[in-house]
Simulated scan of single mutants.
Amino acid sequence: MFFTRKAFPVQFNEHLPLNTLIENIVFTVFDTETTGFQVASTDRLIEVAAVTVKGCQVQSSDTFRLYVNPERQISQEITELTTITNEQVAGAPFALEAIEQFFDFVQRNETSCLVGHYVAFDVLVLKNELKRSKFHLKKLQHIDTLDLIGFLAPSFDMRDLEKYAQAFGTRIYPRHQALGDALTTAYLFVELLGHLKDRGYSTWGDLLQVTNSPARHLSF
């Protein structure tokens, strides 16, 4: 039997003229933590967090963070990595409610674009959690800081967020915690935007061009 998944109700401020200056765009930088890497099958979301970037500045007072009940045990290995315990998530909302709250934060800030470091994984997490609740996401614009680094510094091939933050001299927050990684990514992203502007790339169209990737949209 064929089951049709409903479109998840989320609206972005995404219809921007290509000549819109980057500093006039609102970005939401986000990160997730999970019970493991098999998010299409057995592993689940345990934390989601985000921070707003507006006017090419990190709005550190405008953040979102939520633990998520994964409906399964968190291994000791993941607890040691993330500091998230089974007790902390026991009374937390389930994935669908957590994702709804996340997108409420995104829409409340009139976000035009999501940003993440190796964002494809975080996208996959959202996709599969929504799929379990019979939802799918329409196309939502997103940018990976790895694509931006690949354009600005193609010789860099470290992938590790902390090493990139060190290389570009930006702030580093606690690792493998969704809010810490979101904040670290946000400050790295702002620094990268500065380098982009120094090279003469200043508009939304420029940003889309230099980060062009087949996986740039959340299209499920």
Rank of each mutant, 00 (worst) to 15 (best):
R5W: 07
D31Y: 04
R159T: 15
S61M: 09
T63H: 05
R171N: 15
T34E: 03
F2V: 10
Q38L: 09
D43V: 06
E162G: 08
E33D: 04
A165T: 12
V106D: 11
L207W: 06
Q38C: 07
L193P: 05
F168Y: 12
L137T: 05
L161G: 14
R216N: 11
Q88M: 13
E47P: 01
Q11V: 09
I25W: 09
Y67C: 02
T20C: 15
D104N: 08
Q57R: 13
P70G: 05
E47Y: 00
E71W: 00
Y67W: 01
S112G: 15
L146Y: 06
C56S: 12
F135Y: 15
N128Y: 14
N24V: 07
V58R: 07
T42W: 02
H195I: 00
D122V: 03
I78N: 07
F189M: 04
V58Y: 09
R44W: 01
Q107E: 15
N19Q: 15
L130G: 02
Q107I: 07
V48G: 03
V68G: 04
F102N: 08
K134V: 03
Q57T: 13
K138I: 07
N13D: 13
G194Q: 13
D31V: 02
K131W: 06
G36W: 04
T184Y: 06
F64D: 12
S219R: 13
I74H: 00
L207F: 05
L207I: 11
A215D: 09
D144W: 13
L130V: 03
V26M: 01
D206N: 14
L130I: 02
A95K: 00
P17A: 09
V39W: 10
F37E: 04
Q177I: 09
A165N: 08
G150T: 12
T35H: 00
N69H: 14
L126N: 05
K127D: 09
H176G: 10
F8T: 01
S155K: 05
L218P: 00
D31L: 02
A98V: 00
L45M: 14
V53K: 11
T184H: 06
D198V: 01
A98Q: 03
A50Q: 09
T79C: 01
Q177H: 12
G200F: 07
H117R: 05
D181F: 03
F27R: 10
A98E: 07
K131S: 14
C56E: 08
R216W: 11
T145D: 10
H142F: 04
V123C: 12
T184E: 12
N212P: 01
E14D: 15
F94M: 12
